[in-house]
Design a protein around this nucleic acid. Structure first.
Lengths: 148, 148
DNA sequence: TCTGGCGTTGACGTCGGGGTCAAGGTCTAA
DNA sequence: TTAGACCTTGACCCCGACGTCAACGCCAGA
């Protein structure tokens, strides 16, 4: 299998696969003409990388899982190094969530206070119809990396 | 006040102040010899920026607050544009927290499963003293931007 | 007068995860 | 034979918020 086919089957670009190879994450055999040659095993490795990447793991953090698979283990998380990455990721997530919670509390409180002061400064009829300013342009920003 | 003094009083570097000026966030008067000249008002603006930045607001998100202060309002969040930034930040935080929660659940479950499988494969005495591997090198990574 | 400590601008580096050319080699079907 | 679809390497670009370095100007104290 050449790089184009693997990229398509893995749902990645050829650039990404070359990048992974340059980082030593996915070394490739070569055919006589210099083309990269991959097999089904490489597809499994890529799926492992993809799963972790979608969870917000950095590339380096996927390395233990990939090496675990290449070492012949049935799953990428069958090795101690992978478990350690899991654990540190959990700690990182908990820390991040806690900080975001604290910030959310503070920003929410600041907003409430500022809204109160604004309503005092310019008393509009709060109990009448409140036209819901700008509810249409919801900046949902489609979900990407969880920015861990 | 020149840039060095302001930077020190605001707890920032001169590079940061020049960067803010380049972004149009903190324009500076100039003395006859070309040096930047600041006053106490600029210190207030910087403190506003700093507060928001510490909460994870991007530079552009601090702009409405800074302009609100420069317009003579008592607080940076006295203007509608600032409130709108508060609101979108809240939504962003809620979204981010929810995603991190989901990821945390999944990673936690994966870790538990992998640990279980590991303990089945290599049964060590779980009920005896468990030496708490590597609890000393806590990768706390001193608190920075909440990466919103 | 010299030294050292400020100030100035401009340019480039950082970090991650690739995107986007450019210039050329290789293979296959028509 | 030739088009066009694939492959190769190398190089530069992107985001944000600055850090770092270079080369120079300005000013005060010894």
């Amino acid at each position: 299998m050449r790089i184009g086919e693997l990229a398509e089957r893995a749902g990645m670009t050829t650039r990404t696969l070359r990048y992974y190879e340059a980082r030593g994450l996915l070394p490739a055999r070569r055919t006589t003409n210099g083309y990269r040659a991959y097999d089904e095993e490489d597809l499994r490795l890529l799926e492992q990388i993809r799963t972790l990447r979608d969870f917000g793991f950095g590339l380096e953090e996927t390395r233990p899982f990939v090496e675990c698979l290449r070492a012949g283990h049935p799953a990428g998380d069958s090795c101690p190094a992978s478990l350690e990455v899991y654990r540190s990721k959990l700690a990182e997530l908990d820390d991040c969530i806690a900080r975001l919670h604290a910030v959310r509390q503070q920003v929410g409180a600041d907003l409430a206070r500022a809204e109160l002061e604004a309503s005092v400064a310019e008393p509009r009829c709060e109990w009448s119809t409140h036209p819901q300013e700008t509810p249409d342009t919801t900046p949902v920003e489609r979900t990407e990396r969880p920015t861990p």
